[in-house]
């Protein structure tokens, strides 16, 4: 039973990882861009929510009303002012600029919030759970995170396949040059993609902060989880990214069940196994 429990909790944890990964997956899909500071932006969202709750006493979930639009705007500005300048044939500038950003952001957060470990208190939601069968109970919060992940991905699919903006984003992913002939400004489309990604990053950050402890240094590890979920799931496929997150969460929980020190290690090993046998991931839609 404890194994079944580990797997079920792993699936739910995978929902959080899918939230981490969605923004990364989306930005790569539209503009073949990988943001090394992705994990640090998740932690920034966590700290933003933390600051808001401590200042106003808001419920952590309510902070999303502020944090998500602010991060989306910041993402738009960051893309237009800095990241767009790094795009091109050479892979060095985007990698190195966002890597520099990652180090800068971690240390700015360290200065602002110290290295102390924090957590968002969400009251009754934190401990509420219900028993499915004897020996297997599901926490309301982990379940909520999972359902939100599904809802986010479903909504994004609706945006991509049902709206004009989504059409432009997919067309840009196909062919950045020809889409200009449709009157689309690449710089603006890229920034919209980043804004959407940052909106999801905010959701991921707030739920991370409600589920676990966080401090300024844990961003890079979140980037790696997000990255693993994207690669396992296959590039350019958000449902694949959800599947990748779930597989990663299950692998980690099975590892932890064997020995607490194996949790993250098992996730990495599954990721490495996937690149060994299927480097394009489980459900790829676009080529790297």
């Amino acid at each position: 039973m404890e194994w079944i429990n580990a797997i079920v909790q792993g699936v739910l944890l995978g929902g959080l990882y899918a939230l981490f990964a969605t923004g990364l997956s989306l930005m790569f899909g539209v503009m073949r861009f990988v943001n090394i500071a992705h994990g640090d932006f998740i932690i920034i969202a966590a700290f933003a929510a933390f600051t808001l709750t401590s200042l106003t006493g808001m419920h952590p979930l309510a902070t999303l009303i502020v944090v998500a639009p602010v991060l989306a705007l910041a993402g738009y500005a960051n893309q237009r002012l800095i990241l767009n300048r790094t795009l091109g044939k050479d892979i060095l500038p985007p990698l190195l600029v966002t890597f520099g950003m990652s180090v800068v952001l971690q240390n700015l957060m360290l200065e602002a919030f110290t290295a102390d470990s924090r957590r968002l208190q969400s009251g009754a939601l934190e401990t509420a759970s219900f028993q499915v069968i004897d020996g297997l109970s599901i926490g309301v919060l982990p379940l909520l995170v999972f359902l939100v992940a599904v809802a986010v991905i479903w909504s994004l699919q609706r945006v991509f396949y049902g709206t004009g903006v989504g059409r432009l984003l997919r067309a840009t992913s196909d062919d950045q040059t020809t889409v200009k002939l449709m009157g689309a400004n690449n710089a603006h489309i890229f920034a919209i993609a980043t804004a959407i990604a940052s909106f999801v990053v905010a959701i991921a950050g707030v739920f991370l902060a409600m589920r676990t402890n966080f401090d300024p240094s844990i961003g890079p590890a979140r980037l790696l989880f997000a990255f693993e979920a994207v690669i396992i799931g296959g590039l350019g496929n958000l449902w694949g990214t959800l599947a990748g997150g779930i597989l990663l969460g299950v692998a980690q929980n099975i590892g932890a069940q064997i020995d607490p020190g194996f949790q993250v290690l098992f996730g990495h090993l599954v990721f490495l196994a996937i690149i060994a046998v299927r480097p394009e991931g489980l459900f790829p839609r676009i080529k790297a």
């Binding site: 990988v34 090394i36 980037l223 990255f227 690669i231 790297a288």
Partner: peptide
């Protein structure tokens, strides 16, 4: 893995 994926 290619490019940025190799890096990470």
């Amino acid at each position: 893995l290619r490019g940025p994926y190799f890096a990470i």
